[in-house]
Structure formats: C-alpha cells, structure tokens
Design a binder for these strands. Sequence first.
DNA 1: TTCTATTTGTTCGTATGTATG
DNA 2: ACATACATACGAACAAATAGA
Lengths: 254, 254
Amino acid sequence: MRSNGVRGVLPNPKHAQISRNLIADLKRGKFAPGELLPTEAILQKRFNCSRHTIRVALRTLYERGLVISKQGKGTIVQKLPKQPLYQSTFSTLQSLVQYAKTTSRTVLTTNLVLLNESLSHWLNCPQGYKWWKIRTKRQQKSDGTVVASSTIYVPRYFESAVSKLTKSALPLFSIMQKEYLHEIARVEQTFSVAYATEEEASDLNVKQGTAVMAIERRFIDERGGLIEVARSAHQPEYFEYHMTLNQITDPDNC
Amino acid sequence: MRSNGVRGVLPNPKHAQISRNLIADLKRGKFAPGELLPTEAILQKRFNCSRHTIRVALRTLYERGLVISKQGKGTIVQKLPKQPLYQSTFSTLQSLVQYAKTTSRTVLTTNLVLLNESLSHWLNCPQGYKWWKIRTKRQQKSDGTVVASSTIYVPRYFESAVSKLTKSALPLFSIMQKEYLHEIARVEQTFSVAYATEEEASDLNVKQGTAVMAIERRFIDERGGLIEVARSAHQPEYFEYHMTLNQITDPDNC
DNA sequence: TTCTATTTGTTCGTATGTATG
DNA sequence: ACATACATACGAACAAATAGA
C-alpha cells in the first residue's frame, strides 16, 4: 500500500472507511433518496484518494442496495431498507446475526442422534454417523412472544460449539465460525408453508397442525461442505420475512 | 476503451465476456466445486487482458455466489445454485423473469379502480387517484397446476403496458421497462403465511381460508418511486421459495 | 437538431500490503 | 524465510451515456 494514512498497520482499507462514512451520511439523511450523491471526482477530493478507491467504496453501497450508479448521470441514492418489526430483513449473513440480537433464544434439548435413512438423506451424510440435534425456541425480546421453534443439526465434530450455545446469545453458525475458523461461504434458504408438528405447536402455543412459515437453512462452507441444517417454524400472523432484490450487473445471457 | 478486440463497436465489455466464459466453464463442470479457479495471473494470460479486468469479471461470479476469493489461497469454486422444480430460485431481477418462463399466466380481470383509504395507504399514493387492478393466475407449464393467484396494482399512467399484458408472456414489470424506459431499481419482497381470500381460493382450487404463502412485491424505480405492487397467493405443498445468501464484503460495522 | 461538458464505465499500467502454505 | 496469490491503492486514458446549451 502506498500509505494508509495515520494507521498504517491494521487491516482497515481506505475504501471501507469511505463506505462506512458514506453509509453513515445516508443514515443521517444527509443525502435524500432520489437525489444524486456527490460525483466521484468530488468524493475523490473529499476523501483525498484515487478514483479507483472511491469506486470500490461505492460498489459496497451498491451491493447493499443503497445507491445505483448511472453512466452519464451520477449515483442515485435509494431509500433505506425497511426496519424490522416482527419481521426480519436479511439478505446477507451479517443481517442474520443482527436479527438474532433482537430476539432471545432458549435451548430446549441437545442430543446426539444416530442418522437413520431419512435423516442421512436430508443431511447429505451417510447412515450411521452421529450428529447433534438441538431444539430451541426464539422469543421477541420486547414482549416475550415466541416467534420461532427450531431444530438444528450439526456434525458431532462441532461438540465444543454446541456446548457453548447456552452461554452465548449468538447463532450457532456464528459460534462455529469463531471456534473452528470454518468460514461459512453461503446459506441456502427455503421458505414454505408447513403444518406445526407436536413439538413446534407446543413451543409456539398454537394447535398442532396450524399452518406456519417453515424456513430451512443449510449452511455451507468454502469447500462446499454442509455443516449445519436448521429448520424453524415461525408463528403465522406475527412473522414476515422481508428482503430486497437489487438490480445486479448481468453479463447479458446466463 | 483501449481496444475491444474484434468487435470494437457494440457495448460488450471485456469483463462481461470473460465472466460469461467462466460461468459457462463452471456450468460445463470444467472446474469442480471446492477446487480452485486458475489464478488471476493465469486468467490474465488466457484472456489477454489486465489483472484489473479479470478482477471485475471475478467480482461478477462472486456476486452470484459462484466463487469465493481468499487472499493468499485462491478463488474457490462453489456448488451451482439449486435448480427450481415447483420452486422459484431468484435473488436477482433477471431470475424473476426466468421463473416466469416456466409457468404460464392467464389474465382474469383488468379494472381501473379509484383508490380508497386503505388502498391509498397500501400503495403509498393519495386517495382519488386511479390505478389499474389486474388479477391473474399462473400455472405450471408442465402439468397445468395452478401455482399462484395474483393481484397487481399499477398507476393509470402505464395503460399501454397493461393492454399488452395478455399478448405477452413476460411479467408486467418487464413490459413496463421496455415500454417506458422506466428502470426498475429494486424489488422489495415480503413473505408471509396468509389465508386464501374467496377469489384466491377459487383460483387455486382450495377452500377459502386455507393457509397459503403470500408474497408481496413492491417494484421501485431509480428515483425511489413505487410503480407496481403485486400480491400473490401461492399453493402450499406445491410451492417453495428458495434463495441463497452469500457472504458479502462488510465494512466492519453498520 | 447538433454540439459540448459532465459523469460514470472500461481498460490498461504499476507498486505494495498481507494472508497462505 | 520464501514464493504464491489475492487485496489495496495510485495514475492515466478513452468510451459511452446523459443533460443542457
């Protein structure tokens, strides 16, 4: 690096500082939705850096849906994403952690189970292996409403992360990342309408067979390996899932 | 541009050509999930371009969740996203159009309605204005199963797009983009469990009050204006929504 | 309509920092 | 310690879209 200004050592790239700065401006309402952000040339002077660095920073804002750049026109400020109520808003892994902060989790049971045929198929792992099966419920911190009843499966290998679950407020995948340096590369989510099992109905205080929103999440590491599967049943009426699709650069076909 | 090789005229950036090329390789299985892509230096030689151009191309693959780059290690190939069945898989606008291709739409009714209080609030537009209200149902092309019953609202202004709806297979927002050069900047989606109204129940061939997956989509243009609101009720059992969350570069906090 | 200035998009070159093995 | 490979950063130039004269 030519120079990192004052700091010089810590991994705090200039473009990240700039994007944080701009995001803070947007949140303060310094730039209104629909208006144009200062031009790249102006930002370049303001932050005393190259145009390249500005563009990297703007790319971050773009990926979050905060701005859209148009050639010949400028960079247009978008409305900030909705705030959650009884509703979660995530399209990135980070926001999943954020969601976890507004609710509290109770661990109900923790068992080591032997994979039978149907489980081994679902978890994409040969029969005979043992996985941890964890049941939890999640309540809104504000009023104690139970919003979700979850069943989580993780390979036996992650025992020490499982044991830390009750003492931590973080989601399991987040603990696993810290504990084993296993990077979660992505999460595949599937939403469907399902009918509450006996256990789920009891957790959610509804009748068995009530329609619920079921969310299945499969956590996948860098090498494509499956390291956690979670199924949660969510209270209907009180639960909505909100997300934003952004216009993404598309190389024509594909 | 220094030179665009053979073509020289059409807007076909080199980085887009390269990303298409690499995506095709991935689809052909040339690089297996978990393996490393050729290094940036090698790709640079292969495509005879600068390293910067390679990085822009790789960024596209990254944003689609196809690869993940690690400093000091390389660029790791991810598993390709799931294919849809009775299930839609979109995290970009383009894939919404793709979904529309595997199903067929029937326009049931088209009316110009005056906004009452509740509609004006929902559509974020003053009372007294007139909007088009369109009801459609969507069937699986393969077997005719009705997968969705939708109600769409658009401002009166878009009359000519509305009139083209029956003759086109495209989603309304896609027609509107072509017709009015109105760029859709993003779509806000909300998923919830709801109970079928009389109309929806009739379209889906279920009893009124049956639990359905409700999806509300709000289409927003560059200037932050709302230009379409659609609510669809989806058959439970037969409908799932699948998406992938990718690890996104995060400037620390925020 | 045409021309021009502005603004973002693309592409090259170069150099150094930092994580991995 | 070393080589490798990606990350960050600066500089420069031209292309293409937009908006306004």
